[in-house]
Amino acid sequence: MSYNIYEINEDLKEFIPKEIVDLQERATWGNPKRGVMDLPYSKELVEEHSLCAGCPESAALRYILASLPNPEDTIIVNSTGCTSLVFPHIALHTVHSLFGNQNAVASGIKRVLEIRFPDKVKDVVVLAGDGATVDIGLDCTLQSFFRQERITTICFDNEVYANTGGQESGLTVKGYVFKMAPKGKQFDKVPMWQLAIDSGCHYVARLTVSSPKRVEQVIKKAIYVAREVGPTYVHLYTPCILEIGLNSDDGLEEMRNRDKERFAFFEYMTPHAEEVINKVKEECLL
């Protein structure tokens, strides 16, 4: 059964676009067991958008939105970048923050929601690019970890400022040349997953989005741990096929290649986080 925020007045139904009717009748609300295996059949919580054909960020968004255990009570905070082109087309509460401020905004939202709805589970998730998370927003990102804010931070690492046409970021690989980084990157890729551990995150994962099921597992773990313990961080490789000169059907192969090297699956959890994950597994929610 669909969630009632999307219940359409019967008298108006014939005038409502099909996609909205589908959100009521064919989306997976109210079911924490929802996941990527619903994708072939259900109405997704994201509509058509303007990301490039074949962009792995699009696939990542499908998997994440399909995996949220509590979408009707999830608030996603975004920042400027290619991901922000998708946010107007997502059927959830989303907030577009000033570039780099996303973790500060999310921390405030989470704290207020805990006061306003003390008996309700409200998940706050940050979703932003590498430039927003690790360069311009690094201060806010790390402060939210130090302060043990109970939010999940997801970084879409395409190793470049894609939306502004190819400047290097802290997550660019040393030596890489981009259109607007002609000399090549002069220092090493920032190991953000390690910074997240050192700064107090209770669950950290690094992976590509080449395996939808794995993305689902990681997102669910990160959200359940953030709910009960403290900050969690998910680092996803979503290559910008445009800026690295690949064709639209090359993104998956690129990720499968990186699965074997700098984006080999890595997972860290504190003992408290492990307890929560085991409990959720016993409840068959993972």
Partner: peptide, 14 residues
């Protein structure tokens, strides 16, 4: 249907 990057574009008929 899982690897198509676009939402509700490649679907399955059981």
């Amino acid at each position: 249907t899982l690897f198509c990057p676009e939402p509700n574009t490649l679907m399955y008929n059981d």
